[in-house]
Structures are given as structure tokens and as C-alpha cells.
Write a protein that binds this DNA or RNA. Structure first.
Lengths: 168, 168
DNA sequence: AACAAATAGTACATATATGTATAATATACG
DNA sequence: CGTATATTATACATATATGTACTATTTGTT
């Protein structure tokens, strides 16, 4: 093993001290919340680094991918917000940038005048096809430490965690 | 069941379409990355909301807790960055704010003149003791959908995921 | 001993993200 | 039908976060 030092150890150590001082402090939830945060920061940074040469950042990439996975490559800002996990104001800011880059376009909705339709352009589709191989490699590398069975179990548990958060 | 609609469904649906279009697209890693992101955003927002009446935000809370869990309530900025999972420039900005609020103080290090010692003040310790009950309640509620065995398994898998990210 | 390389922490310009007010429009209700 | 309520999307002021250059200092190397 190259280097078994666990980057989470400094965090866990401090939580252990807090638990000794306050036996009622819920160690497990505190550990889980911080693991999610550390993972998120790392995954976010790695994706930003890979996408930088393509002139987009991780959230922009995510929006493009959610449109790409939709019939007609089209979603409204509200739908895109839900699919991408972004606040509505951020959707406006991010989609402004993607429009400026010519990767998506905004058009009025036929059925509801309050709504806007966001659609991938030809350039947007081309860019996705361009970076997909690199992104696939990154994604595979990020989770290569997990066996398929473990990844499936992790998915199940993360979903359960998320579902319950949303019922509170 | 009150409302079984799964907030992650819009995301997963789009990933499924992408996988059909690109069989080599790694669905499992893409799902895991987005579950982590959705969880992080939600956990972050909930903590910010709870802490707002205390005049601090989630990252500031986290720094206070890492100091609280340390001998003498003292860490250097580098150590705090590692424990809290924050970039060094953010540590400077956040600790500036906590100093302004009188919750921590900066002093020179005896053993290394490049270093600074960050220490909780009496007011900082008092604030932690003040909000801990509410934070404990939030933490317990956030993970109450998971059985203890599931939470332990989730911790193990998240650690494995994180460890591997850091060996890349 | 002298110099090179690395580390610690910060300043600051820039990037990213958000809360909330607002206007326009659709839907619900009496 | 008229009015109230909810929804959609955005503007914009503010909050949060970061990359990188820099200075001071420590450690490593020759």
C-alpha cells in the first residue's frame, strides 16, 4: 500500500474528542455529514480540473448532461434545477453563461408563457461528444476503489439518506 | 408513505437516457457523484438555516467544532484546513470572520514563526455549548432514516470511496 | 556555510453561489 | 367571473469560495 494515511483521520479524531466530552453528541451522523462534504469538495475539484480545458466548470457540465439526457435536449429552468440539483438563481446565472458560449439556447415555451425552454445547440452536443471520453475515464477512476457490489450498496444507502432528508 | 416521489428521479432518468445513447458511459459512478452532490447541498442548507440565529454559517460551525475537538482548543490554519476540509484561502477568510466575532483568536506559534495558532475563546466555547443541543437534534433527524447498521455500512463505503480518490 | 526547495499564511482580484424582490402568467377558489 | 394564490424566471445586491502571487520562515541538499 502506497500511503495508508487516511485524509479523514484529522476530522474523525476531533469528532472523537467531542464525543468524549459530550456522550450525547451523535458521532455517526456527524461523521457521515463530513464524509459527504469531503467527497463533494474533492469530486467537484477533480471535475473542474478536467473540464477547464473545455472552457466549462463542473456545474455547467452537469447542466449540459441533464439536457443531453432529455428528449429533444430540452428542459425548462425549473426542471433543469431539479435534475441538476441547483438553486433557481444559479440556473439563471449558469445558463446565461452557457448561452453566451453558444452551447444552449433559450426560447419561449409554447404552452406556458411564464416558462422558458432551454435547449442544447449543435455546438453543445458536439462539445459533449468531445469531452465524454475524458469524463468517462475520470468517473471510472474516481470509483475504481469500489467493487460493483459495493457501489450498488453505496447507491442504495445514499438514496435512503437523501430520501429521508426530503421528508423532514 | 407520505410522498414517495423521489427527488433524485429527474436526475437518474436523464442519466439513463445518456447510458442508452452511450453504453460506455459509467452509470454507477455518475449516479454516485450526483447523489453526493445532492446530499451535500441539502445538508449544507439545513445546517446554514439552523445556525443562522447563532450568527454563523455551516463552514464556520465546522471550524469551531474542529477546534473544540482538539487539545487546548488550538490548531494551526493548515491543520484546521485538513480537519475541516477547506482550502487555505478559505480558512483565512473564515477565521478572519470568527476572530471578528470574538469566537477564536490568532496568536503566534512558539515553535515555528511561519505558523499561527488558532484558539477558541471563552465566548467560542460558550457558543458551542449553546448550539450543541440544536445541532445534535438536526444531525439525528438528518440520518434517522438509516438503521445503525446501515449508517455504519455507509460510513465504511464513503471512506473507501474517499481513500481511493486520494490515491489517484 | 551557502543556497535551493518547501512550507505557512495571507492579500486580493476574480469566480461562484444565493436570498429575495419583482413582474408576468397560470391556477385555484368562492 | 373576479379575485387570491401560486408558479416561473430573472435582476441584483450580497455572500461565499478560490487561484495565485507574494513574503517570511523552515528544512533539505550540496
Amino acid at each position: 500500500m502506497i500511503d495508508a494515511v487516511n485524509s479523514f483521520a484529522p476530522t474523525e479524531q476531533r469528532l472523537a474528542v467531542t464525543c468524549r466530552r459530550h456522550p450525547a453528541f451523535p458521532r455517526e451522523p456527524a461523521v457521515l455529514v463530513r464524509l459527504v462534504k469531503h467527497l463533494y469538495k474533492r469530486l467537484h475539484d477533480d471535475a473542474n480540473a478536467l473540464l477547464k480545458p473545455w472552457g466549462i466548470n463542473h456545474p455547467e457540465y452537469n447542466l449540459l448532461m441533464m439536457l443531453y439526457g432529455t428528449e429533444g435536449y430540452t428542459l425548462s429552468p425549473s426542471q433543469l434545477a431539479a435534475a441538476a440539483g441547483e438553486k433557481s438563481a444559479n440556473i439563471t446565472r449558469l445558463t446565461d453563461g452557457l448561452c453566451d458560449k453558444g452551447l444552449i439556447e433559450r426560447t419561449a415555451s409554447d404552452e406556458d408563457r411564464r416558462r422558458i425552454a432551454l435547449t442544447l445547440t449543435g455546438a453543445g452536443v458536439a462539445m459533449i461528444k468531445g469531452f465524454l471520453p475524458d469524463v468517462c475515464t475520470l468517473l471510472e477512476r474516481q470509483t475504481s476503489g469500489l467493487q460493483p457490489r459495493e457501489a450498488a450498496q453505496l447507491e442504495k444507502l445514499l438514496k435512503k439518506f437523501l430520501d429521508h432528508l426530503e421528508q423532514a
